[in-house]
Protein backbone atom coordinates (compact mmCIF):
# COMPACT_ATOMS: atom_id res chain seq x y z
CA UNK A 1 0.00 0.00 0.00
CA UNK A 2 2.78 2.44 0.81
CA UNK A 3 4.25 2.05 -2.69
CA UNK A 4 0.85 3.03 -4.04
CA UNK A 5 0.75 6.20 -1.94
CA UNK A 6 4.29 7.14 -2.98
CA UNK A 7 3.57 6.64 -6.67
CA UNK A 8 0.27 8.50 -6.36
CA UNK A 9 2.00 11.46 -4.68
CA UNK A 10 4.65 11.46 -7.37
CA UNK A 11 2.00 11.33 -10.05
CA UNK A 12 0.02 14.21 -8.50
CA UNK A 13 3.16 16.34 -8.24
CA UNK A 14 4.09 15.41 -11.78
CA UNK A 15 0.71 16.24 -13.31
CA UNK A 16 0.36 19.54 -11.46
CA UNK A 17 3.85 20.66 -12.39
CA UNK A 18 3.80 19.46 -15.99
CA UNK A 19 0.56 21.32 -16.71
CA UNK A 20 2.04 24.56 -15.38
CA UNK A 21 5.30 23.76 -17.13
CA UNK A 22 3.60 23.84 -20.54
CA UNK A 23 2.84 27.52 -19.99
CA UNK A 24 6.30 28.25 -18.59
CA UNK A 25 8.05 26.74 -21.58
CA UNK A 26 5.93 28.56 -24.13
CA UNK A 27 6.38 31.83 -22.28
CA UNK A 28 10.14 31.24 -22.21
CA UNK A 29 10.03 31.35 -18.45
CA UNK A 30 11.43 27.94 -17.65
CA UNK A 31 14.24 29.45 -15.62
CA UNK A 32 11.84 31.73 -13.76
CA UNK A 33 10.08 28.56 -12.65
CA UNK A 34 13.44 27.20 -11.55
CA UNK A 35 14.11 30.42 -9.65
CA UNK A 36 10.74 30.33 -7.88
CA UNK A 37 11.21 26.73 -6.83
CA UNK A 38 14.47 27.70 -5.08
CA UNK A 39 13.29 30.98 -3.72
CA UNK A 40 10.21 29.73 -1.84
CA UNK A 41 12.53 28.19 0.74
CA UNK A 42 12.79 31.20 3.09
CA UNK A 43 9.00 31.54 2.88
CA UNK A 44 8.58 27.97 4.05
CA UNK A 45 11.05 28.41 6.91
CA UNK A 46 9.49 31.68 8.05
CA UNK A 47 6.01 30.19 7.90
CA UNK A 48 7.33 27.31 9.98
CA UNK A 49 8.84 29.69 12.54
CA UNK A 50 5.73 31.85 12.81
CA UNK A 51 3.16 29.09 12.92
CA UNK A 52 5.40 26.81 14.96
CA UNK A 53 4.54 23.69 13.03
CA UNK A 54 4.46 22.13 9.64
CA UNK A 55 0.90 23.23 8.96
CA UNK A 56 -0.11 23.43 5.37
CA UNK A 57 -1.94 26.73 5.11
CA UNK A 58 0.80 28.99 6.55
CA UNK A 59 3.39 27.23 4.42
CA UNK A 60 1.39 27.69 1.24
CA UNK A 61 0.88 31.31 2.21
CA UNK A 62 4.55 31.93 2.98
CA UNK A 63 5.68 30.27 -0.21
CA UNK A 64 3.06 32.05 -2.28
CA UNK A 65 4.23 35.42 -0.99
CA UNK A 66 7.87 34.54 -1.64
CA UNK A 67 7.03 33.28 -5.12
CA UNK A 68 5.40 36.57 -6.06
CA UNK A 69 8.22 38.48 -4.40
CA UNK A 70 10.72 36.55 -6.51
CA UNK A 71 8.88 37.34 -9.72
CA UNK A 72 8.69 40.95 -8.66
CA UNK A 73 12.38 41.14 -7.70
CA UNK A 74 13.49 39.64 -11.01
CA UNK A 75 11.35 42.18 -12.87
CA UNK A 76 12.60 45.01 -10.67
CA UNK A 77 16.28 44.19 -11.16
CA UNK A 78 15.70 43.77 -14.88
CA UNK A 79 13.54 46.82 -15.53
CA UNK A 80 14.52 49.36 -12.86
CA UNK A 81 18.13 48.46 -12.13
CA UNK A 82 18.65 47.49 -15.79
CA UNK A 83 20.44 44.26 -14.97
CA UNK A 84 20.33 41.77 -17.82
CA UNK A 85 17.56 39.22 -17.38
CA UNK A 86 19.55 36.00 -16.92
CA UNK A 87 21.66 37.69 -14.27
CA UNK A 88 18.64 39.06 -12.42
CA UNK A 89 17.19 35.56 -12.26
CA UNK A 90 20.50 34.13 -11.05
CA UNK A 91 21.15 36.76 -8.42
CA UNK A 92 17.61 36.67 -7.03
CA UNK A 93 17.12 32.96 -6.56
CA UNK A 94 20.59 32.16 -5.21
CA UNK A 95 20.25 34.93 -2.68
CA UNK A 96 16.83 33.81 -1.47
CA UNK A 97 17.85 30.16 -1.41
CA UNK A 98 20.98 31.01 0.61
CA UNK A 99 18.77 32.96 3.00
CA UNK A 100 16.52 29.93 3.37
CA UNK A 101 19.38 27.55 4.15
CA UNK A 102 20.86 30.01 6.65
CA UNK A 103 17.49 30.37 8.37
CA UNK A 104 17.26 26.60 8.62
CA UNK A 105 20.66 26.38 10.29
CA UNK A 106 20.07 29.31 12.63
CA UNK A 107 16.76 27.91 13.82
CA UNK A 108 17.83 24.29 13.52
CA UNK A 109 16.33 23.42 16.90
CA UNK A 110 13.01 25.05 16.05
CA UNK A 111 12.60 24.11 12.43
CA UNK A 112 12.13 20.52 11.52
CA UNK A 113 13.49 20.71 7.99
CA UNK A 114 16.90 19.43 7.08
CA UNK A 115 19.05 20.61 4.23
CA UNK A 116 18.96 17.36 2.32
CA UNK A 117 15.18 17.35 2.48
CA UNK A 118 15.27 20.76 0.81
CA UNK A 119 17.17 19.28 -2.10
CA UNK A 120 15.38 16.07 -2.76
CA UNK A 121 12.48 15.76 -0.39
CA UNK A 122 11.29 12.79 1.59
CA UNK A 123 8.71 11.19 -0.61
CA UNK A 124 9.36 7.86 1.12
CA UNK A 125 7.88 9.30 4.33
CA UNK A 126 4.68 10.44 2.65
CA UNK A 127 2.65 7.35 3.67
CA UNK A 128 3.69 7.77 7.33
CA UNK A 129 2.18 11.21 7.67
CA UNK A 130 -1.52 10.35 7.53
CA UNK A 131 -4.52 12.56 8.09
CA UNK A 132 -6.72 11.26 10.87
CA UNK A 133 -9.94 13.14 11.54
CA UNK A 134 -11.22 13.98 15.02
CA UNK A 135 -13.52 10.99 14.88
CA UNK A 136 -10.56 8.75 14.16
CA UNK A 137 -11.15 8.00 10.53
CA UNK A 138 -7.94 7.45 8.56
CA UNK A 139 -8.15 9.48 5.38
CA UNK A 140 -4.77 8.47 3.99
CA UNK A 141 -1.57 10.52 3.65
CA UNK A 142 -1.87 14.28 4.05
CA UNK A 143 0.40 14.95 1.10
CA UNK A 144 -2.16 13.33 -1.21
CA UNK A 145 -4.85 15.72 -0.04
CA UNK A 146 -2.63 18.78 -0.34
CA UNK A 147 -1.27 17.87 -3.75
CA UNK A 148 -4.75 16.85 -4.87
CA UNK A 149 -6.21 20.23 -3.90
CA UNK A 150 -3.45 22.10 -5.71
CA UNK A 151 -4.02 19.97 -8.79
CA UNK A 152 -7.75 20.72 -8.65
CA UNK A 153 -6.92 24.43 -8.39
CA UNK A 154 -4.64 24.23 -11.41
CA UNK A 155 -7.28 22.33 -13.37
CA UNK A 156 -9.94 24.88 -12.44
CA UNK A 157 -7.61 27.65 -13.58
CA UNK A 158 -6.92 25.95 -16.89
CA UNK A 159 -10.57 25.05 -17.62
CA UNK A 160 -12.11 28.38 -16.65
CA UNK A 161 -9.42 30.62 -18.11
CA UNK A 162 -8.15 28.50 -20.95
CA UNK A 163 -8.57 31.26 -23.51
CA UNK A 164 -7.00 34.02 -21.39
CA UNK A 165 -3.97 31.91 -20.54
CA UNK A 166 -3.54 30.79 -24.12
CA UNK A 167 -3.77 34.23 -25.65
CA UNK A 168 -1.52 35.92 -23.08
CA UNK A 169 1.00 33.13 -23.64
CA UNK A 170 1.10 33.09 -27.40
CA UNK A 171 0.38 36.67 -28.32
CA UNK A 172 0.71 39.17 -25.47
CA UNK A 173 0.14 42.23 -27.64
CA UNK A 174 -3.06 40.80 -29.11
CA UNK A 175 -4.13 39.85 -25.57
CA UNK A 176 -3.57 43.42 -24.44
CA UNK A 177 -5.50 44.68 -27.47
CA UNK A 178 -8.60 42.62 -26.65
CA UNK A 179 -8.43 43.63 -23.01
CA UNK A 180 -6.74 40.75 -21.18
CA UNK A 181 -4.21 41.91 -18.63
CA UNK A 182 -0.94 40.12 -19.36
CA UNK A 183 0.55 41.26 -16.05
CA UNK A 184 -2.40 39.84 -14.09
CA UNK A 185 -2.17 36.44 -15.77
CA UNK A 186 1.59 36.49 -15.39
CA UNK A 187 1.26 36.90 -11.64
CA UNK A 188 -1.59 34.38 -11.36
CA UNK A 189 0.50 31.81 -13.18
CA UNK A 190 3.52 32.56 -11.02
CA UNK A 191 1.46 32.18 -7.84
CA UNK A 192 0.24 28.82 -9.06
CA UNK A 193 3.84 27.81 -9.74
CA UNK A 194 4.82 28.85 -6.20
CA UNK A 195 1.91 26.92 -4.70
CA UNK A 196 2.73 23.83 -6.72
CA UNK A 197 6.38 24.13 -5.77
CA UNK A 198 5.77 24.41 -2.08
CA UNK A 199 3.18 21.66 -2.03
CA UNK A 200 5.65 19.41 -3.84
CA UNK A 201 8.45 20.57 -1.57
CA UNK A 202 8.09 17.97 1.14
CA UNK A 203 7.80 15.11 -1.26
CA UNK A 204 10.31 15.92 -3.98
CA UNK A 205 12.28 18.89 -2.67
CA UNK A 206 12.91 22.31 -4.10
CA UNK A 207 15.28 21.31 -6.88
CA UNK A 208 13.72 18.20 -8.31
CA UNK A 209 10.39 19.92 -8.69
CA UNK A 210 12.10 21.75 -11.54
CA UNK A 211 12.45 18.45 -13.38
CA UNK A 212 8.68 17.98 -13.20
CA UNK A 213 8.00 21.58 -14.16
CA UNK A 214 10.14 21.64 -17.26
CA UNK A 215 11.02 18.22 -18.62
CA UNK A 216 7.62 16.53 -19.28
CA UNK A 217 6.29 19.74 -20.82
CA UNK A 218 9.36 20.02 -23.03
CA UNK A 219 8.96 16.38 -24.05
CA UNK A 220 5.34 16.98 -25.01
CA UNK A 221 6.34 20.10 -26.91
CA UNK A 222 8.63 17.99 -29.10
CA UNK A 223 5.75 15.67 -30.00
CA UNK A 224 2.91 18.00 -30.90
CA UNK A 225 2.03 21.44 -32.14
CA UNK A 226 -1.43 21.41 -30.59
CA UNK A 227 -1.59 22.98 -27.17
CA UNK A 228 -4.44 20.82 -25.76
CA UNK A 229 -2.53 17.71 -26.76
CA UNK A 230 0.65 19.11 -25.28
CA UNK A 231 -1.07 19.51 -21.89
CA UNK A 232 -2.38 15.93 -21.99
CA UNK A 233 0.92 14.45 -23.14
CA UNK A 234 2.88 16.38 -20.50
CA UNK A 235 0.59 15.00 -17.79
CA UNK A 236 0.94 11.47 -19.15
CA UNK A 237 4.75 11.71 -19.23
CA UNK A 238 4.70 13.08 -15.71
CA UNK A 239 2.72 10.08 -14.44
CA UNK A 240 4.87 7.66 -16.41
CA UNK A 241 8.07 9.12 -14.93
CA UNK A 242 6.79 8.80 -11.40
CA UNK A 243 5.82 5.14 -11.86
CA UNK A 244 9.07 4.20 -13.62
CA UNK A 245 11.08 6.33 -11.21
CA UNK A 246 9.67 4.48 -8.24
CA UNK A 247 10.60 1.16 -9.82
CA UNK A 248 14.12 2.36 -10.60
CA UNK A 249 14.65 3.72 -7.09
CA UNK A 250 13.58 0.49 -5.46
CA UNK A 251 15.95 -1.42 -7.78
CA UNK A 252 19.09 0.49 -6.82
CA UNK A 253 17.98 1.74 -3.38
CA UNK A 254 18.37 5.45 -4.12
CA UNK A 255 16.34 8.61 -3.75
CA UNK A 256 12.87 8.12 -5.23
CA UNK A 257 12.56 11.74 -6.27
CA UNK A 258 15.98 11.60 -7.91
CA UNK A 259 14.95 8.49 -9.83
CA UNK A 260 11.72 10.14 -10.97
CA UNK A 261 13.70 13.11 -12.29
CA UNK A 262 16.05 10.71 -14.05
CA UNK A 263 13.05 9.08 -15.72
CA UNK A 264 11.66 12.41 -16.95
CA UNK A 265 15.06 12.84 -18.58
CA UNK A 266 15.01 9.39 -20.15
CA UNK A 267 11.57 9.97 -21.66
CA UNK A 268 12.78 13.32 -22.98
CA UNK A 269 15.78 11.66 -24.63
CA UNK A 270 13.48 9.14 -26.32
CA UNK A 271 11.24 11.90 -27.67
CA UNK A 272 14.29 13.90 -28.69
CA UNK A 273 15.55 11.03 -30.81
CA UNK A 274 12.34 9.42 -32.08
CA UNK A 275 9.73 12.19 -32.21
CA UNK A 276 7.89 11.66 -35.53
CA UNK A 277 7.92 15.34 -36.33
CA UNK A 278 10.84 16.94 -34.51
CA UNK A 279 13.10 14.03 -33.52
CA UNK A 280 16.70 14.10 -34.67
CA UNK A 281 16.24 10.77 -36.52
CA UNK A 282 13.42 12.20 -38.56
CA UNK A 283 15.50 15.24 -39.40
CA UNK A 284 18.36 13.00 -40.42
CA UNK A 285 16.06 10.98 -42.69
CA UNK A 286 14.75 14.13 -44.26
CA UNK A 287 18.24 15.38 -44.83
CA UNK A 288 19.18 12.05 -46.44
CA UNK A 289 16.08 12.16 -48.63
CA UNK A 290 16.81 15.69 -49.76
CA UNK A 291 20.35 14.60 -50.40
CA UNK A 292 19.10 11.72 -52.55
CA UNK A 293 16.77 13.94 -54.51
CA UNK A 294 19.58 16.33 -55.21
CA UNK A 295 21.78 13.42 -56.28
CA UNK A 296 19.01 12.10 -58.55
CA UNK A 297 18.38 15.46 -60.15
CA UNK A 298 22.08 15.69 -60.90
CA UNK A 299 21.89 12.33 -62.70
Amino acid sequence: MSSFWIILTGALVAVTCSLLGCYLILRRMAMVGDAISHAVLPGIVLAFLISGSRQTIPMLLGAGILGILTTFLIEFLHKKARLQEDASIGVTFTWLFALGVILISVFANKVDIDQECVLYGEIAYVPLNVWITDTGTNLGPQAIWIMGSILVLVLIMIFTSYKELLVTTFDPSYAAAIGFSTALWHYILMSMVSLATVASFESVGAILVVAFLIVPAATAYLLTDRFELMLVLAAVFGILSSVLGYLLASQIDGSIAGAMATMTGLIFVLAFIFSPRYGILRKKNEADKTGMIIEESKV
Binding site: I207, A218, G254, G258, A259, T262, G265, F268, Y278
Partner: peptide, 28 residues
Protein backbone atom coordinates in the same frame (compact mmCIF):
# COMPACT_ATOMS: atom_id res chain seq x y z
CA UNK B 1 20.07 23.96 -32.07
CA UNK B 2 18.37 20.65 -32.83
CA UNK B 3 14.86 21.32 -31.51
CA UNK B 4 12.38 24.15 -31.26
CA UNK B 5 13.02 24.35 -27.52
CA UNK B 6 14.54 27.63 -26.39
CA UNK B 7 17.75 27.97 -24.41
CA UNK B 8 16.07 28.54 -21.05
CA UNK B 9 14.09 25.31 -21.38
CA UNK B 10 17.23 23.47 -22.47
CA UNK B 11 19.12 24.75 -19.43
CA UNK B 12 16.26 23.75 -17.16
CA UNK B 13 16.07 20.25 -18.64
CA UNK B 14 19.80 19.57 -18.41
CA UNK B 15 20.08 21.08 -14.96
CA UNK B 16 17.23 19.20 -13.34
CA UNK B 17 17.81 15.84 -15.00
CA UNK B 18 21.56 15.79 -14.30
CA UNK B 19 20.90 16.84 -10.75
CA UNK B 20 18.25 14.16 -10.42
CA UNK B 21 20.69 11.52 -11.64
CA UNK B 22 23.31 12.93 -9.25
CA UNK B 23 20.95 12.70 -6.29
CA UNK B 24 19.92 9.19 -7.27
CA UNK B 25 23.56 8.06 -7.43
CA UNK B 26 24.52 9.91 -4.27
CA UNK B 27 21.72 8.37 -2.22
CA UNK B 28 22.44 4.96 -3.72
Amino acid sequence: TKTKLKEDSAIGIVLSVFFGIGILLLTA
